[in-house]
Computed example of a mutant assay.
Amino acid sequence: MILRQFLHTSPVAASYLFGCGGRAAGAVVDPVGDIGPYLRAAEETGMRIRYVIDTHLHADHVSAGRKLAEASGAPYVLSAEAQAAFPFHGVRDGDVLELGNVTISVLHTPGHTPEHISLLVTDRTRADEPWFVLTGHTLMVGDLGRTELAADAEQGARVLFQSVQRLKALPDYLEVLPGAYSGSVCGRSLSGKPTSTIGFEKRHNKAFRIDDEHAFVRAMVADIPPAPAQAAEIRAINSGLKEAAE
């Protein structure tokens, strides 16, 4: 298994390159900004980028996903639920993407956005169980993703509650690799530490550990911070409904 985490500061976000070095097959998840670092990292680790994946249509930054997919010749992957005005490789809950000895199992985890997916990653050279989960902006270290950027806040919170139950059911040892960390506008109590585990978040993430749906919804819709500047416009750009300014 090869894994590289890219931490961005403007906007605050986390991206990932991972895959099977032995079979020279990798994937990039939630790329931001200049695509050069991803292409160089793939070359340095001897991997061909087989998939470029966005966990959701972002509202806080313009995705580099389509540009990287075009440059690398890889399919651009989104949830099949995504409302996008361009061709993409749509995946559904339970689908598996192969990267040699590494597999990616898709979990549909809506709530932050309706199309949001998380990615369970397994390295079969080590174990048959998943090693880590890429949770995008659904579960982050210290908090959960806000629910009003792509839907009604209360309805989004009810949907997110169901997604949280799926994530809570994962093994406690499973590493959590989120799409954002402290400073991101997509969560309220995010840690500056950009990794965690399911078990630690179940014990110490206040929003994640709420078991009652009504209490969960109340917590998620209380004191919602201001939306990111131009959030609707950025999401429209990422869905192909609007052209990005040069």
Rank of each mutant, 00 (worst) to 15 (best):
L149T: 07
L149H: 14
L149F: 13
A151K: 04
D152E: 14
D152C: 06
A153D: 14
E154F: 02
E154Q: 09
Q155S: 11
Q155K: 12
Q155D: 13
G156K: 04
G156N: 07
A157N: 12
A157L: 07
R158H: 10
V159F: 04
V159H: 11
Q162P: 00
Q162W: 01
S163M: 07
S163Q: 08
Q165N: 12
Q165H: 02
Q165G: 01
Q165V: 01
R166A: 03
R166K: 15
L167R: 04
L167Q: 04
K168Q: 15
L170Q: 08
L170G: 07
P171E: 06
P171G: 05
D172H: 00
D172K: 01
Y173E: 14
L174C: 08
V176M: 05
V176T: 05
L177R: 15
L177C: 05
L177K: 09
P178M: 13
P178A: 12
P178I: 10
G179D: 07
A180S: 15
A180R: 05
A180D: 14
A180V: 10
A180Q: 10
Y181I: 03
Y181Q: 04
Y181P: 03
S182F: 11
S182L: 14
S184E: 03
S184L: 00
S184Y: 01
V185C: 06
G187N: 11
G187M: 04
G187T: 10
G187L: 09
L190D: 09
S191Q: 00
G192L: 13
G192D: 15
K193R: 12
K193E: 13
P194Y: 14
P194M: 07
T195L: 10
T197I: 07
T197C: 07
I198C: 02
F200L: 10
K202G: 01
K202Q: 10
K202E: 04
K202A: 03
N205D: 09
N205E: 10
N205Q: 07
K206M: 12
K206T: 12
I210Y: 08
D211R: 15
D211F: 03
D211A: 14
D211Y: 02
D212Q: 13
E213W: 06
H214C: 03
F216W: 11
V217L: 08
V217R: 08
V217S: 05
A219K: 13
M220H: 06
M220W: 03
M220F: 02
A222P: 00
A222N: 12
D223V: 02
D223E: 15
I224H: 07
P225N: 12
P226Q: 11
A227L: 14
P228M: 08
P228N: 10
P228H: 11
A229H: 13
Q230S: 14
Q230H: 15
A231K: 06
A232G: 05
A232W: 03
A232M: 06
A232F: 05
E233H: 11
I234Y: 07
R235F: 00
R235D: 01
A236P: 04
I237K: 08
I237C: 06
